[in-house]
């Protein structure tokens, strides 16, 4: 189970951005995880709750959007989503296939609150 490693890396990025941007709080974190990534969402959420305690990220909800698998044949150009045919085009049988979508592991966006001084200026 490597979700804790992923969450630790995520927390490093979030806290660094929070410090630099002066956010008072992070209320939501949205990840985009490709279908081929071996990530268990419940494990991510659990690790995130543990790792964010005592930080300005504590209490933020972790949303995980799954990006579907899309493979594309480099010969016939057709696309499909079947993960059992990752390497072979199910239409023309060609063996040179690209995974166009499905390997992402992205920090998509965050929802933040600014500190009160900044709110006053705005």
């Amino acid at each position: 189970m490597h979700e804790m490693s992923l969450v630790e890396a995520l927390m490093d990025t979030l806290l660094e951005m929070q410090r630099r941007q002066g956010w008072s709080r992070v209320s939501r974190v949205t990840l985009k995880v490709g279908k081929l990534r071996q990530v268990v969402p419940e494990a991510m959420v659990f690790c995130f709750e543990v790792a964010s305690k005592g930080t300005p990220v504590e209490g933020a909800s972790l949303e995980i959007e799954e990006a579907p698998l899309v493979s594309r044949c480099t010969r016939c150009g057709r696309e499909w989503s079947d993960s059992e045919s990752l390497g072979l085009c199910p239409f023309c049988g060609y063996a040179d296939v690209d995974v166009v979508q499905g390997m992402e592991l992205l920090l998509e966006s965050v929802e933040v609150e600014l500190d009160s001084a900044e709110i006053g200026r705005n």
């Binding site: 992923l6 890396a9 995520l10 490093d12 990025t13 951005m17 941007q21 209320s27 939501r28 990840l31 592991l105 992205l106 920090l107 998509e108 966006s109 965050v110 929802e111 933040v112 609150e113 600014l114 709110i119």
Partner: peptide
């Protein structure tokens, strides 16, 4: 008032 900030960076960017 919460603000949405788009990021779109790899979670494992530093190690990558």
């Amino acid at each position: 008032m919460p603000r949405l900030v788009e990021i779109r960076r790899s979670v494992m960017e530093a190690d990558e």
